[in-house]
Amino acid sequence: MDLSKVSDQITKVLVTEEQINEKVAELAAELDKKYADKDVLLVGVLKGAVMFMADLSRAMQIPVQMDWMAVSSYGSGTVSSGVVRILKDLDADVLGRHVVIVEDIIDSGLTLSWLVGNLEARGAASVEVVALLRKPAAAKVEVNVGLVGFDIPNEFVVGYGLDYAERYRTLKGVAVLSPAVYS
């Protein structure tokens, strides 16, 4: 869906569809170079990374496998509990493989930090994070991120997989959601 369809619900566009397409191609090329001739498993973090994972994997020129995880540290609240639960685990074994976690956005880094440690403990040859978006001002823990598409301000954003109440995921860009929508 075009951002123009929800212009009354957003305050500003941070990343356009064109910028995303260019960045995805750039990130895919970097991953191709880094992981040529390696056994790569892309692990998408549900649900937000679906759009990014689909576009990134199709832009890559090396053979990769894909799998998905869903993890949560929020329970029914809006503030992280600090306890991570696996809602959907991987079907693939990561032992000896090069795992690339594909994330839509890095916010506090708490859940992602736990996920990296979990996959390393399962015996992955390496674990790297590639994220489309990162909010440096929101970081609570240091997460070693291999590749980042865009650093953005610490504002509530939607689009390109990111949602509010399961809406806005299909927007073709990333925009700041108007506080009037969620307050």
Rank of each mutant, 00 (worst) to 15 (best):
M1Q: 07
M1G: 11
L3E: 01
L3C: 11
D8C: 00
Q9F: 00
V13H: 00
T16L: 07
T16H: 02
E18Q: 15
Q19P: 01
I20F: 07
N21Y: 03
E26Q: 14
E26W: 12
A28W: 06
L31A: 04
K34M: 13
Y35Q: 03
D37M: 00
L41G: 03
L42F: 04
V45H: 10
K47P: 09
K47I: 11
G48D: 06
A49E: 00
F52D: 07
M53Y: 02
S57F: 07
R58G: 04
M60C: 09
M66F: 06
D67H: 00
A70D: 08
G75F: 10
V84D: 10
L87R: 13
L87C: 11
D91T: 15
A92P: 01
D93E: 10
V94K: 08
L95I: 12
G96L: 01
V100D: 10
V100H: 10
I101Y: 08
E103R: 09
D107L: 05
T111N: 06
T111V: 10
T111M: 03
L112R: 01
L115C: 13
V116G: 07
G117T: 14
L119H: 13
E120M: 14
S126N: 07
S126T: 15
E128S: 12
V129Q: 09
A137R: 11
A137Y: 09
A138L: 03
V145N: 01
F150I: 12
P153Q: 07
F156Q: 08
F156H: 05
G159D: 05
Y160T: 01
D163A: 11
D163M: 05
R167P: 08
T170P: 03
K172S: 15
G173D: 02
A175E: 04
L177A: 12
A180V: 10
A180I: 07
A180F: 04
V181C: 00
Y182G: 09
